[in-house]
Design a protein around this nucleic acid. Structure first.
Length: 638
DNA sequence: AAGCAATAG
DNA sequence: GGTTCTATTGCTT
């Protein structure tokens, strides 16, 4: 046990923080400050916020015949997560159950949480619907540099310590981190009505491990000198985040059960099972070492809908299920505003002998003309995608023999933002020579002003109320006024851009390999994802302002500035964010405007791919004169 | 680009 | 090592 002078919590060293050498001499003071937030029994909380009368009763959220989560009242009776409904009712006959198969409200609240956190600091990484990591290293360093305090103190618990007895001034950065965590939890509560736990530590691993030390609705800070203690408190390898069932079984086969076993196991032997890199990674985890960065999630990479059931065994039922799933998925996709370019169908087959739970999938590109219909909300999108879905289905299932499905999932991925579909960003990233159009767009982004989104603007530039993606944008930028104006960079190929700090050349940044980009993004504490709202096709309709009761409650009490009013250029091309547009130099505005008026063709056809080398075994169901509402309609040639 | 494995809540 | 309904990343082809 070496005490490595770990209390040197301070320093922050060279004030200017040129991130030049990322892996530089990492003295203890350059440790990160990472937060982990975990909403208390999330689905149940969402239901209680929606219906406060449920607060005081034992409440469970039911999906099919499972209670997926429950409130703390129900836990008093012994109800637990993932308990069967019958078992839960035995434990607690008065248990109130609400159906939770439809994730809409959970998903929406989940993104509101992430947005609220992002409004304080953009480096937020989602983990599932109810957890978020945040890297606040630079904010903490900045605060201490600008306003040093003599008597620091912790908010909440300190792991293994009597709260009052800690000499917080020896850990100023973690102490400030705990204050920020408390402030953010307070904001989550006052703005969204949600309670949460938080962990404050020097890595994602430790922050996550420590966040659960005091539950519910409490927070805990881990001092570096107690890293060994918290790791030692784990009673099995499976409790280490990153070691799942499979890895756990493999480790068991190697004779490793306790965390200590993994710590001392010969690395070379571990590498035989898991490969060099993975072996090192999991052994590091066992030592409480985790250098993985907090990687901003941005908007989702895929949208999917699924349903499980006892049995589907006919094509007719299959088509119906496909239609149902696709209908809701299309609605979500339309609101998102991005254009899906690949479609995946996955199934689970019933198997009595081998009750192995495995899924099989087939996927294919979505023709651009169909993708566009998804965006525009055309009613033609549904039948055309059902048709594609059935073809994928037939690649999975031989319908001339009996079949028995127990689950179906439809997924849209490879989501293209408006900018992508206009052919600007793709080449920016992948191509060697960015087109003129690309240059101009990057220029225009660079010229734009900082991220204060104005609700009033939405009235001017949007025609329909939306959720998901756009909510993300609108709330995410409400309190970022302290951030310096920056340049933009495309974020993860979607309807989003990543604003880079002013001193980072986006052209240079874009040329870096992706893993390098990911590594250095956490050093940009002024970076932020921002959504470019897609433009609705139907002009005229107005959106309402008050459709999100959660976010409009309790506007006081949190230092989120009331956005001021800003004029929006009346003549703004529909394919450009008016806020961005209004900041452009007049000549660029002119050019964009005239381009738009000329309806300049902007779509680029991805590749001349020979569609499916002759469609392997696919019966081109010949085009029969089709009846509406007939199954056959889906078998027309596309 | 496709399909699956593994991990996560 | 199975429940639900997602979502992400990485490996292999």
């Amino acid at each position: 046990m070496d005490e490595d002078e770990d209390d040197a919590d301070w320093d922050t060293s060279s004030g200017s923080s040129a991130p030049a050498s990322t892996g530089g001499g990492c003295s203890d003071g350059s440790r990160r400050v990472v937060l982990h937030f975990d909403l208390d029994c999330f689905y149940a909380q969402v239901e209680m916020v929606r219906n406060p009368a449920l607060r005081d009763v034992p409440l469970g959220v039911q999906q099919k015949y499972i209670v997926v989560t429950c409130n703390y009242v129900a836990r008093e009776y012994g109800v637990t997560k993932l308990m069967s409904v019958t078992a839960a009712k035995e434990k607690c006959p008065q248990l109130v159950l609400v159906k939770g198969e439809d994730l809409t409200h959970y998903r929406e609240t989940s993104y509101k949480v992430t947005e609220l956190l992002m409004s304080y600091c953009p480096l937020v990484e989602r983990l599932g619907f109810d957890e978020n990591f945040m890297d606040i290293t630079e904010i903490v360093n900045g605060k201490i540099r600008e306003a040093p305090v003599t008597d620091y103190c912790f908010s909440g618990h300190v792991y293994n310590c009597q709260a009052a007895g800690v000499r917080a001034s020896e850990y100023p950065r973690l102490a400030v981190g705990s204050q920020i965590a408390a402030e953010l939890r307070g904001a989550l509560h006052s703005r969204l009505g949600l309670t949460s736990c938080a962990g404050i530590a020097s890595s994602k691993l430790l922050a996550k491990l420590v966040s659960g030390a005091h539950k519910p609705n409490q927070q805990t800070t881990l001092l570096p000198k107690y890293t060994g203690d918290i790791i030692g408190s784990l009673t099995g390898l499976r409790q280490i985040p990153g070691i799942g069932y499979r890895t756990g079984e493999k480790l068991k086969a190697l004779g490793l059960l306790a965390v200590r076993d993994l710590q001392v196991f010969h690395l070379a032997a571990l590498a035989k099972e898991f490969g060099e890199a993975n072996a090192q990674r999991i052994q590091n985890l066992a030592h409480g070492i985790d250098e993985s960065p907090v990687t901003p999630s941005g908007p989702p990479q895929s949208l999917s809908d699924e349903d499980s059931f006892k049995e589907i065994s006919t094509v007719t039922e299959t088509v119906k299920k496909l239609e149902d799933l696709l209908t809701s998925l299309l609605e979500r996709m339309h609101k998102d505003g991005r254009q899906p370019s690949t479609f995946r169908l996955t199934i689970r087959r019933f198997s009595s002998t081998d009750r192995w739970f495995s899924r099989e999938s087939r996927q294919c590109p979505i023709p651009i003309h169909i993708g566009q219909k998804v965006i525009s909300g055309s009613s033609e999108a549904l039948p055309q995608l059902v048709s594609i879905g059935i073809k994928l289905f037939h690649k999975l299932i031989d319908t001339s023999a009996p079949f028995h499905l127990t689950l179906m999932n439809v997924c849209f991925s490879n989501l293209l933002s408006r900018r992508d579909t206009k052919g600007s960003i793709k080449s920016f990233f992948t191509a060697k020579s960015p087109s003129r159009q690309d240059k101009k767009e990057s220029l225009s982004l660079r010229a734009s002003e900082p991220c204060v989104t104005l609700p009033e603007e939405h009235m001017n530039c949007r025609t329909e109320r939306t959720t998901d993606n756009r909510d993300f944008e609108s709330t995410a930028s409400t309190s970022l006024m302290q951030l310096k104006p920056t340049t933009f960079h495309k974020g993860r190929g979607k309807n989003w851009i990543l604003r880079l700090p002013a001193d980072v050349d986006p052209d240079v940044f874009s040329l870096l390999p992706e893993h390098i980009q990911k590594e250095i993004i956490p050093t940009f504490h002024t970076a932020v994802f921002q959504h470019i709202p897609p433009v609705e096709s139907r002009p005229g309709a107005m959106c309402s302002l008050h459709d999100h009761p959660l976010s409009t409650r309790d506007t006081e009490g949190l230092n989120v500035p009331r956005p001021s009013s800003l004029g929006v250029n009346a003549a703004c091309p529909p394919n450009v964010d008016p806020r961005v547009f209004s900041e452009l130099p007049p000549d660029l505005q002119q050019e964009l405007l005239s381009e738009w008026k000329q309806q300049k063709p902007v779509l680029k056809i991805p590749s001349k791919k020979v569609v499916k080398g002759g469609s392997t075994k696919e019966k081109k169901t010949t085009g029969q004169p089709s009846q509406a509402n007939n199954l056959l309609k889906y078998f027309k040639p596309n």
